[in-house]
Structure formats: C-alpha cells, structure tokens
Amino acid sequence: MAAAPVIAFGELLMRLDTHGHERFVQSDGFRTTFTGGEANVAVALTQWGLPTRLVSRVPDHDIGTACLNHFRRYGVETDLVLRGGERLGILFVETGASQRGSRVIYDRLHSSLRSIDPGELNWNAILDGAGWFHFTGTAPALGANVVEALHDGLAAARERNVPVSFDCSFRSTLWSEDQAAGILPPLLEYVDVFVGSARDAQTFFGVPGEGEESMAGMAAKYDLRAVAYTKRIVAPTGINTYSASLRLDGCTYVSPALDVAVVDRIGTGDAFTAGLIRGLILEDPPQRTLDFSVAAAVLKHTVPGDFALLSVEEIQQLLDGPGVGSVRR
C-alpha cells in the first residue's frame, strides 16, 4: 500500500546565486532556482519514494507558475498551493570557498505567504489522508496571520493524529530571539518530532543543559516522541565535520562524525530532517534512521542548490563504506 503523503507548510522562495564563487559585488548575473526549507524536505522525500504535498501561497503570474513547475519536476505535488499576493520572496546567495563562508541576503517583505488570510486554507481537506505534517521556524517568523494559519493546521493535525515535525531553523534576519521565544513554545505543544540544538532549547524553550540532558528535558517538557540535535565543526581549512544525536522513545542514539568538503552548505539541515522523517515513517531501526539522516546531510554538502538530489542507494553506500567517492561506471 502506498505511503500517506507528507504535508509541508511554508514559504516558497526564488533563489538567486552568483556565478561560481563570485562575490555579490563582482557578479554580473544570477542563476535562478526555487527553494523553501519545508519544500527542500519534500523534494528529498520524493527522491526516496515518499509522496509529498506543498502547502503555501505564490503569486498568480508566470513567476509563481515557474516556481511550482520547478517543484513538480522533482515529483512534489503542488495542487494545494494557493495563488495570490504580490510577489515571491527572494534569497540572494554568494557561495563561499575554503575559509570564506557563504552569505545569504533575504528579500522577503510583502511576499505572497506573508499576506495570506488564514481562512483561505481548508485544513480539513489539506490533511485528509495525510501521513505527516512538517514545518520550520521560518514560517511563524512571517507574521501573526501566518502563525494563525499554522496553528489552525497543527490543531487539525492533532485532531487527526497526524504526526508533526518541527525544525527550529531560527533566522535572525527574519525576527529576534525574543520574538521567537514568545511565539514558538505554544506551537511546540502540537509537535511530535523536534530538530534543533541545545542552544535552541535554552534560548526559545527555557530548557537548560547540553546533549542528552537537553534532549531529555525537551522531550519531557513538550511530550515529544523524538528530539534530534545536529552538530557541525568547521576546521580552519573549511572542512566540515558533521554528526547528530537522537532521543527517540526515551533512548538516546549518537551518529558517527563524518568529514566533508563543502560545495553548498544550504539545505543540509533539511536533508537531515528528511532522513529523520523517512526513517520514522518506515519504522527503520533508530540507529539506522539517525545514521541515514547524517549521511544524507553530509552528501547534500556536495550538491549545488538547496535540494538533496540523492538516491537511497547513494546514501546507503556512504553508510556502508565500500566505494565512497569512487567513479561509478
């Protein structure tokens, strides 16, 4: 029997990249793609055989259509995306190299999702037959109307026993820590799976401690089934070391730490979250779920753009060792 679809609610954006590793001040043009934190998760899941549906709002003109077409080409369903509003939000990306990190500049005011009327979303219809609901911290950062729409969706998901995952994804250019700390905790009452860090737990949810202590505190305070924290160490040479830990059903699991040379770091957290959702839906063993998620995130570092365009076989190859980095003929 086919899996029930994963519903991903959040803003869809146009991504404009400088050519190669050019700086903003030297680039004479930009490469255009489309993205969104929740949408990145949806694309990864469709690559791994799980159906996904986007819930958002884009303008009713050709740029909005181009955005939806971009996600359709990767198998993501867009029929639930509303049309209206002024414009798509934009992120400008300058991809770094070696010791120079990447930079992102947002241009997201007056975007279509920011002006949504919560009553436009029929959550009963949206969640009919749904198997999962996912959102990130960038959605409630967009305004009180988006928070209201999200709250309605979360309440409807709870009524239908649809599992909910939340990636904290705090962005300081969208809102302040104090604003986030005032809005996020009530939403977490509806969440089953939390992805973030010990700093997120302390800053936004008042849960002290590090590592296992922090994860256990989050799980207890919000009755969470799963809490996952990712960890990144950046060497002076620019090499990243990536690992994660997972507390699931009262037990804690830790992944190996993997090194990676970065091509594009954006979207790696979404790849990790997608791996976690996949493992929980398929009821894979917890350690395998965590290790798959970390391997997916690590490999995403090697793929330009936001999407984890990776097969299950490629991720498992990294997990299982033989042939890593070799030419496939």
Rank of each mutant, 00 (worst) to 15 (best):
E11F: 12
D17F: 14
V25M: 08
V25Y: 11
D28E: 10
F30I: 02
T33N: 13
E38Q: 04
N40I: 03
V41S: 01
A44P: 00
G49T: 11
T52D: 03
R53N: 08
R57P: 01
V58S: 01
L68Y: 06
R72V: 12
G75D: 12
R87F: 13
G89N: 05
L91Q: 10
T95M: 14
G96T: 09
A97W: 15
S98Q: 15
R100S: 07
S102T: 00
V104M: 10
D107T: 03
R114H: 10
S115I: 14
I116T: 11
I116L: 12
N122I: 12
D128K: 07
G129I: 12
F133K: 00
H134P: 02
T136H: 10
A139K: 02
N145P: 02
A149T: 07
D152E: 14
G153S: 10
R158Y: 14
V162D: 05
S165K: 05
D167G: 01
S169G: 03
W175Q: 00
W175D: 01
E177V: 06
Q179G: 07
A180T: 04
E189V: 01
Y190V: 00
V193I: 14
V195E: 09
G196M: 02
A198L: 08
R199P: 02
A201Q: 04
A201Y: 12
F205D: 04
V207W: 13
G211C: 06
E212C: 02
A219S: 14
A220K: 15
L224C: 03
R225V: 11
R225P: 09
A228L: 09
R232C: 13
T237H: 09
T237S: 13
Y242I: 14
A244K: 03
A244C: 05
D249M: 10
D249W: 15
Y253W: 13
V254H: 12
S255M: 10
P256V: 11
V260H: 08
R265L: 07
G269M: 02
A271P: 08
T273A: 08
I281N: 04
I281W: 14
I281G: 02
A295Q: 05
A295L: 08
A297C: 09
G305W: 15
L310P: 03
V312F: 13
E313Y: 13
P322E: 15
G325W: 11
R329G: 11
